[in-house]
Amino acid sequence: MEPIKILMTQLREIARGSIELLPQIAVALFVLLFTIGLNKLIGFLVDRVLARTKLRPSLKELFSLLSSMLVWILGLMIAAVIVFPGLTPSSILAGLGIGSVAIGFAFKDVFENFLAGIIILFRREMRIGDFIECEGIEGEVEHIAIRESHIQQTDGQLVIVPNSILFKNPVTIRTHQSSRRMTVICGVAYDVDVDEAREVISEAVATCESVLQGDKPIQIFAQEFASSSINFEVTWWCGSKPVEVRASRDEVVATVKRALDDANIEIPFPYRTLTFKEPLPIAQTEEN
Rank of each mutant, 00 (worst) to 15 (best):
P85G: 11
S64N: 08
R181P: 06
N39D: 15
F44K: 07
L115E: 07
A222I: 09
P281V: 06
V205R: 02
A102M: 08
A222F: 13
R180Q: 10
F167T: 00
R258W: 03
V31N: 00
F34E: 08
I132Y: 06
A80M: 11
Q177T: 11
I185F: 15
E278P: 03
P85M: 04
I282S: 10
I103Y: 13
L55C: 03
I98S: 05
F225T: 13
L32E: 14
I230Y: 07
M69R: 07
I265A: 06
A80V: 04
S64I: 06
L87V: 01
L274N: 06
L115H: 11
F225V: 12
A79D: 04
P281E: 06
Q24N: 15
Q152G: 04
H143G: 03
S91G: 08
W237C: 00
E203H: 13
L7W: 11
T88N: 05
G117K: 02
I103D: 09
T235C: 12
V141C: 03
T275V: 14
L70E: 08
V184A: 13
E2P: 01
G136P: 04
W237G: 03
T183C: 13
P281T: 06
K5I: 11
F44T: 06
P170E: 10
E112W: 08
E244T: 02
L70N: 07
V194K: 07
E112S: 14
D191L: 03
F105L: 15
I82K: 03
I120Q: 01
L70G: 12
I14M: 12
W72I: 15
E2I: 10
V46G: 00
R246M: 11
A15I: 12
K241A: 13
G214S: 02
A247E: 15
P57S: 03
I78W: 08
L11D: 04
V184G: 02
E278V: 15
W72H: 14
G104C: 00
M126H: 00
F44R: 09
V49E: 08
S67R: 03
D262Q: 15
F131P: 00
V171E: 02
T88R: 06
N231E: 09
W237M: 03
L274H: 11
V184F: 05
E199A: 13
F131N: 13
S91K: 14
V49M: 09
A226D: 14
G136K: 01
A247C: 05
D215M: 09
L87K: 00
S90N: 10
L29C: 11
L96R: 00
A94H: 04
V161K: 00
I6N: 08
I25T: 09
Q24K: 10
D47V: 05
Q213Y: 03
V252Y: 01
F105D: 05
I19Q: 05
M182C: 14
F107R: 11
G17E: 14
P279S: 11
D262P: 02
A102C: 03
I220Q: 04
W72M: 10
E133W: 01
R180I: 13
R249A: 09
G117A: 02
N39L: 09
A204T: 05
L121P: 01
T172G: 00
K257D: 08
V211L: 01
L38P: 04
A222K: 12
Q223I: 02
V71I: 15
